[in-house]
Design a protein around this nucleic acid. Structure first.
Lengths: 118, 118
DNA sequence: CAGAATCCCACGGGATACTG
DNA sequence: CAGTATCCCGTGGGATTCTG
């Protein structure tokens, strides 16, 4: 059952923001790019403010949108690896750009970054 | 009294998404770029799904973040013009990119755009 | 025309506890 | 380890009405 997460997009900008908006998606895509592949636990450590529920939910949505792929190793203890798909990787230049812009703004306003996400 | 709209950003990506996230900001910045300057009423027509409350609220936030500037003409009937600031303009390449990406995805999935926002 | 003022609600997101 | 399962809440956003 595919959940109803989206309204009919008005235009392409609307569509895109519906995919990568929300509180964590940008950062997840960003981290997955700089690290190539990340396990669930590693990713969680990089998102200190996320709860397990949101973590799973967000990853599922990214997966459903084919931005992220999920590889399960059937072993004990369980191991799951996340990585970017080609479609997801296409968003990197844009997030790169956004990161640079944000960083510059933060410097200008003397806002300190809790995590240097580079 | 500056409203409390933001949590302390974790990193630059987080910061940026807090500025241009939400349902309308991307589109507003995008429209303001392709049109240089827009009156309140014109902008509203381009955002068929927005209510006056959200329209004003969103524009005020963009203004407070210095992405958009607001010029009031003190005349009857009132006239207010919105345009991008230099900081706001810096986001354009990034939204351009996002628009292209979204457009491509929508084509692939045969999703029809209600508005061609180009 | 460009909004301000109310009132209201869904849902994005949070906290905690449990499990294959 | 990598999740579910519940329960819960704040706020982003909506609908409607009013005004300089």
């Amino acid at each position: 059952m595919t959940l109803k997460r989206f309204n009919d997009p008005i235009c392409a900008v609307d569509y895109s923001f519906q995919r990568i908006g929300g509180k964590y998606k940008g950062r997840i895509v960003w981290y997955l790019n700089t690290h190539e592949v990340l396990r669930y636990g590693q990713l969680r450590k990089m998102l200190p403010d996320i709860t397990p529920k949101m973590m799973t939910q967000t990853l599922r949505e990214l997966e459903e949108d084919e931005l992220v792929s999920r590889k399960v190793y059937h072993e004990v203890p369980p191991k799951v690896e996340y990585s970017l798909t080609d479609i997801g990787r296409e968003l990197i230049p844009f997030i790169n750009y956004l990161e640079a812009w944000g960083s510059k703004q933060m410097d200008k306003k003397n806002i300190v970054k809790k995590i240097e996400c580079v």
